[in-house]
Design a protein around this nucleic acid. Structure first.
Length: 217
DNA sequence: GACCAGGCACATC
DNA sequence: GATGTGCATGGT
């Protein structure tokens, strides 16, 4: 199985090329995007981030200084704007207080302690925490999302009902601990999900068909 | 017009 | 502990 997962990654890499993720200009922007993309299509997040950039509100202090109503209007295209206003402010307050403007304050934190602290922030669940840990802070946490769950289930690797921790454990147990691999593998699963696994059945032409006969239509 | 999208907190049983 | 529900915009 260990080799199997690596083969799947190799096939994806060959097909899509390195993804160079996360799509953000700064580490802080990764954190903002991680909240805004909760249960939301990325193109809508891009509009919201574009609005924040135009308003020069892509810094911790500017976000914290904005009245809730103003922030909500800026992030409106990303949906759930009232909830996400609260979540964004809670996360930014934590990042600013503990990590400082460059997030360097986190450098001395052990991995698990940092994850627990993030999970304690309002609006930060396991996927948001792991996205921030991996893509903004360079920590070795495999990110599980809807695509990961769907694709792993279709490949017959995990149960469709597997919860977040089970899926994360599965990938971690069957992959070497490698931040660059975790980074690009997740990115590959997202591009695969967007390309072939939408809306429901896996399509002919999926680059995984050659490796995984179970998912051929 | 229905359904879906890179979740999470909270209520209820 | 498991399951259900609210949150909301924009694309297909």
């Amino acid at each position: 199985m260990k080799q199997h997962l690596i083969d799947i990654y190799a096939k994806l890499l060959e097909h899509f090329g390195p993804r160079g993720w996360w799509p953000a200009r700064t580490r802080f922007e990764v954190c903002v995007g991680a909240v805004l993309t909760q249960n939301t299509a990325w193109r809508n997040v891009e509009r919201a981030i574009g609005n924040l950039r135009s308003a020069r509100a892509l810094t911790p202090h500017s976000i914290l200084a904005l009245p809730d109503e103003s922030l909500a209007q800026l992030i409106r295209p990303a949906g759930y704007f009232n909830i996400k206003t609260r979540r964004l402010k809670a996360l930014v307050a934590f990042l600013d207080a503990e990590g400082g403007p460059t997030l360097r304050g986190f450098d001395s934190w052990p991995d698990m302690e940092l994850r627990e602290a993030l999970l304690g922030v309002y609006g930060v669940g396991p996927e948001t925490a792991d996205s921030i840990l991996l893509y903004a802070l360079g920590r070795p946490f495999f990110v599980v999302d809807a695509y990961t769950r769907r694709i792993a289930a279709r490949l017959g690797l995990t149960s469709p009902k597997a919860d977040y921790d089970e899926l994360q454990r599965f990938f971690c147990e069957h992959l070497p601990v490698d931040i660059a691999l975790y980074n690009d593998f997740h990115a590959q699963l997202v591009i695969l999900g967007n390309s072939y696994c939408h809306p429901r059945p896996l399509c002919p032409g999926c680059p995984l068909n050659a490796l995984c006969p179970k998912i051929v239509l």
